Amino acid sequence: MSWLSPWASFVKRLVHVIARPMKRDRGHGGMMVHPYRGYGSSKEVFVMGRVFRQAALGRAIPRRGILRDTADVTRRIFRRGLADAQVNIRIGENDLTLKTDRDGYFDAHLPITQSLPIDVSWHRADIHVHAEGQSPVRTSVEVYIPPPETDLLVISDIDDTVMFTGVAEKLKMLYRLFVRKPHRRTAFPGVASLYQALHRGETGKAERPILYVSRGPWAIYEMLETFFQLNRIPVGPILFLREWGISLRHPWPRRAEAHKRMLIDRMLTLFDELPCILIGDSGQHDPEVYAEIVKAYPGRIKAIYIRRVDKDPKREKAIELLRDELVDTQCELVLAPDSVLIAEHAHANGDISAWGLQAVIRDVKEHREEERQEAQS
């Protein structure tokens, strides 16, 4: 049946992405290290990752193809974090040694006492891991440090701000992502061009850091990274996720109260001289959290952009009240129905170029035209 072909392609691509982290061990199993892209300043860098113990691939399993991918997905499901592994991280002449927590995670705060080159933004951090009864593992990861001339920090939510989060919408997104290949409607219309414009700034040549926060677990890291890359959204130094801690003994996600506030506090402290833009959505508590941050960091937040994801009058009224609370600050809260209004405000504030604004307008217009044609077909 011809209708099965796209879905078979969808499943094949999806399984391959989920299996991708398992390819690094070449089927040998044992201890594996999965570092996440890091970030930092001239004073300190942050590098996160996880150390796993995973099963070997059976000799009867082929080295590539859907059967190999399925076996790797199975290995991924049953792999376990390795606690108390010793992790040494070195960047330039700076190094730090720490141990993994009970879930195998490490979260390194590495002070920079020996200066790093300032003519590059991406630096390599070398990672060396030892654990009892396991062969040592060496790997590396990129760490982003903004150039000295950076003039703005952008912190964005992911869920319902960059991408849809409802179950039905996620299935549509994944289908478009892996069957129809790169397609701008896997993300909110205009998001890619908006974030590119914010990254490049008014001159079009800046390299501003864009840091992302999500309520999702680290297990979806590869999926999000693929989503960002195929949709031409600046990937940023790291996707801040949280460990849900789901296991047979703990079948429900661990509570992660103040997760977003804690991370934003960390970033604003690290980049203590940079003004900041916060981007979120109206569906959760982004407006309330962001309003608290404006009050806690007077003069630091240039604008709050809230994407309106529903038309609940009570919710809109609550956000309007928050906007009124910020009238006497230097920050304006903008409740936007689409990316165009955000881009217009950012351009008026001198935060994106005229070319960037036109790119957002063009992308949203093209999306609406595609929707119109689909409705007529």
Rank of each mutant, 00 (worst) to 15 (best):
A56N: 08
G104L: 11
L82C: 14
G190S: 05
A354Q: 12
I18C: 04
R68Q: 15
W355C: 11
E374V: 00
P117T: 11
S9E: 09
L321Q: 13
P117A: 07
E273D: 15
Q196C: 03
H109I: 01
D69C: 10
F240P: 05
L4D: 05
S156I: 14
E332C: 03
I361N: 13
G65L: 04
P182T: 01
A108M: 12
A108K: 07
L263C: 04
Y144D: 01
M173L: 10
M262G: 05
G216M: 09
L268N: 00
T150V: 09
I145N: 00
E369F: 07
A19H: 00
D160S: 10
V167N: 14
A125Q: 05
A348F: 12
V364H: 00
R184H: 14
V11N: 06
I112G: 02
G166V: 02
D324C: 07
Q376N: 02
F78M: 14
P62Y: 13
L278E: 09
V47E: 00
K23D: 15
R63S: 13
Y290G: 03
S5T: 03
H347N: 13
R20D: 10
R102E: 13
R124Q: 07
P6E: 11
S121T: 15
P147F: 00
I301F: 14
K314S: 08
I18N: 03
A348W: 03
H367K: 05
I233H: 11
T113C: 10
G190V: 04
I158P: 00
R200L: 07
I77N: 09
L171G: 08
H345C: 14
Q376V: 00
Q284W: 06
M163P: 04
I66C: 01
T269D: 12
H285E: 11
L211V: 06
D151C: 10
A83S: 03
S247I: 15
H259A: 12
V167F: 12
K23N: 14
L248F: 14
V143I: 05
P147T: 04
E366R: 01
P117M: 02
V360L: 01
S135H: 08
G216P: 03
Y144N: 02
K311R: 02
D324V: 11
Q229S: 05
Y297W: 15
L322G: 07
P146N: 15
V213A: 08
D95L: 05
A60N: 03
R37N: 02
E366V: 03
R79H: 12
G236D: 04
D101E: 12
G356D: 00
G204F: 10
R242W: 12
Y195L: 10
V143D: 06
Y175E: 11
